[in-house]
């Protein structure tokens, strides 16, 4: 970083820009009263290790592993294989 003045002014402008769009988006998102805003508002997606409890316990949005999820492959790979159930169906239909 050769020119301190340029760096400081650049950082200042970026900070102003991001603060403006961030504040505008925060106010917009908090005023949105649609059902989608309600459901996404329940789910916390910010940083952190331990997920907080939802504010409203009637509708729990975060997806937690269930027995059904075992059917999905979550291992590395570009294209996910189909769930086992579908394969069984294909085998049966092939017969």
């Amino acid at each position: 970083m050769r020119n301190p003045r340029k760096v400081v002014i650049g950082v200042f402008l970026v900070a102003i820009f991001f603060t403006s769009i961030s504040v505008a988006s925060i106010i917009k998102s908090s005023q949105d009263e649609s059902f989608q805003a309600f459901t996404t508002g329940i789910e916390c997606r910010a940083q952190g290790d331990i997920m907080p409890e939802p504010f409203d316990t009637d509708l729990v949005a975060p997806v937690t592993p269930t027995e059904g999820n075992e059917l999905f492959c979550s291992l590395p790979g570009g294209i996910a294989p189909r769930p086992w159930d579908d394969t069984d169906d294909d085998d049966q239909s092939g017969d």
């Binding site: 961030s22 998102s29 996404t40 508002g41 329940i42 997606r45 910010a46 940083q47």
Partner: peptide
């Protein structure tokens, strides 16, 4: 507002 929406938005930026 008892909603995570504002902090989700802020965290993204």
């Amino acid at each position: 507002n008892r909603s995570y929406s504002p902090i989700n938005t802020s965290d993204f930026y």
